[in-house]
């Protein structure tokens, strides 16, 4: 499993400019977009946080989303290029391949988020323990995202269709959540969508966990829903992955 996980982490950094550029975009968005918008959002609209703090913590979830969800695209590419056949010919068990890919995607997410944590820590008063706890929540959420990404990518056989579906789903899940804006700013119909969206629970729990030592309570419900999402998406994604492996990808 270590070798599969290692490949995912290693290949992630071969795209150094891509990773760096994405991080820079998020930083700029926080510094410019969120900073300007924070003047327009009335105090109290996002709880005890300012909008700038709210956005900085939400952008951690967005970054993780892109990095981890995209492991599905890699799995799709492995299948199409024959690399999966190669992996299956190696003395590695099928479950190690599946677990390795999921963990690889999660680590990619965490690695992407790490530089953004520096910015978040500057903007949001927190403790090292709170950061570690929020990383734990994000890691679990990333596992679920990997499962979701694998699930979607393996359900579609045509590359363009898979890419479009992935882009569409990513946008819908992020934009209809509380990652970027608070639920009170949404129309009622979107609030309903946001409440059914796992990204909302991940964003809310990260915000609460990061600042809970300052008086916020532990978001038990939010974390539970993140755990349920990770278990469900991870299980279905792994099941689809193992089904494809056992059926033989070249059939």
């Amino acid at each position: 499993m270590k070798v599969v996980l290692g490949r995912d982490v290693r290949t992630f950094f071969t795209n150094f400019y891509g990773v760096g550029f994405r991080t820079l975009v998020v930083v700029l968005e926080t510094v410019i977009f969120a900073f300007i918008l924070s003047n327009a959002v009335p105090p109290g609209a996002v709880g005890r946080l300012t909008y700038l703090q709210f956005f900085a913590l939400g952008s951690l979830v967005v970054s993780i989303f892109w990095a981890s969800y995209n492991i599905g695209r890699d799995v799709y590419w492995d299948r199409e290029s024959g690399y999966l056949n190669y992996l299956m010919s190696l003395p590695i068990s099928r479950s190690e391949i599946i677990a390795g890919r999921s963990l690889g995607g999660s680590f990619r997410g965490i690695l992407t988020a790490l530089p953004l944590y520096v910015l978040a820590a500057i903007l949001v008063p927190t403790t090292a323990l709170n950061i570690l706890e929020s990383l734990g929540v994000l890691f679990v959420f990333a596992l679920g995202l990997c499962g979701l990404g694998i699930m979607v990518s393996l359900s579609v056989r045509e590359e363009t269709r898979a890419r479009l579906l992935n882009t569409f789903l990513s946008l819908v899940l992020i934009r209809s959540s509380t990652a970027i804006y608070p639920v009170v700013a949404m129309p009622v119909w979107l609030q309903v969508g946001a409440r059914l969206n796992p990204v909302t629970y991940a964003s809310d729990s990260i915000r609460s966990v990061t600042v809970y030592s300052q008086g916020s309570s532990v978001p038990v419900l939010d974390i539970t829903i993140v755990l349920i999402f990770a278990a469900l998406a991870g299980t279905i994604g792994s099941w689809l992955f193992s089904k494809m492996i056992e059926g033989g990808p070249t059939e």
Binding site: R7, R10, T11, T14, N15, S81, G82, Y83, N85, Y86, S89, L90, P91, I92
Partner: peptide, 18 residues
């Protein structure tokens, strides 16, 4: 069995990013 063998595929299977 896989621990005993190795295969070089007809179409090279390499990770193009590495």
């Amino acid at each position: 069995v896989r621990s005993l063998l190795g295969i070089a595929f007809q179409e090279p299977v390499l990770d193009s990013r590495l």
